[in-house]
Design a protein around this nucleic acid. Structure first.
Lengths: 145, 145
DNA sequence: TCAATAAATGAGATTAAGTCTCATTTATTT
DNA sequence: AAATAAATGAGACTTAATCTCATTTATTGA
């Protein structure tokens, strides 16, 4: 199991250490984004706080970790692996759940065209984009009580 | 000049006070989003820090202020006025500039359709969305040196 | 395999954004 | 213009994230 984590680290020429393996395993174990708090709980004290933040920064540097802020201002992290293709996020303002969403090819194509226009208009090279959607679950979702 | 700010406050049934007028004027004075730091500088000590944050929360409550986080984790605020229609953001990772961008009607229509699909798929009511784009200015922009 | 060297870690101090408290001031209402 | 309710300022407080530095762990090359 930790083989995957080790592979990821060596693929990115980053030294293989216990804290890095543990953090990667915790992240691999969860499909949706995790808050730093949730991550700390999952690690249950096996990694020092300062080390956890350092490891997260390491993973950001090698571009396999995406960090963002939820509407209620928690910092949330998510692994970006090859098999986990380009996606966007849906936030429930009721329970705070964050759901990964894929948009249709038609939509991404039109967005790409739109982005080319914007690049010309503002003399920009746009490297990345993100669509965020905010709402509430109409059913009780996993987290809504 | 402060008449506009007073009008905004009374339109929203919020009492008219000096700090609120000053904060609104600083926000009205700038087209693009401001970091809280920039806002504090603009106010140059005329409003206490605690009051500034309180006023920002007041403006959020009456839904005329939008707060978000930049890729480098600064909190940024922007007034949402009637004449300032639905728009998105373009971030320069070089100089940190944030540019307001309007997308085409065609794009917004397709996005609305896409959102309806997602609402069904996840049993959600989606109330709002946001498109963020990240890149670098190819020319020296106003802030890039 | 092992020693030398460089890198990473843990523990706790430090920083800084944002909130809270409470005595005082200001706005509103009659 | 007085009474009441709301907002403010100053600074204490909280807490996420970073930093420091002595110790531990990984890597490299003989």
């Amino acid at each position: 199991m930790s083989e995957i984590s080790k592979q990821i680290l060596s693929d990115h020429k980053v030294s293989i250490t216990n804290p890095r393996i543990l953090v990667l395993e915790a992240l691999l174990d969860s499909k949706n984004p995790l808050t730093v708090d949730e991550l700390q709980s999952k690690l249950s004290g096996s990694v020092a706080k300062s080390t956890l933040y350092r490891v997260l920064n390491d993973l950001k540097k090698i571009k396999i970790l995406h960090e963002f802020t939820t509407p209620d201002n928690s910092t949330v992290v998510e692994l970006l692996l090859e098999d986990h293709s380009h996606h966007h996020h849906l936030f429930c303002s009721d329970c705070g759940e964050i759901i990964d969403v894929e948009m249709s090819g038609e939509f991404e194509n039109l967005l790409d065209k739109e982005i080319k226009k914007i690049e010309k208009q503002f003399n920009f090279v746009i490297q990345d984009h993100r669509v965020e959607m905010f709402g509430v679950c109409t059913d009780q979702c996993a987290n809504c009580k």
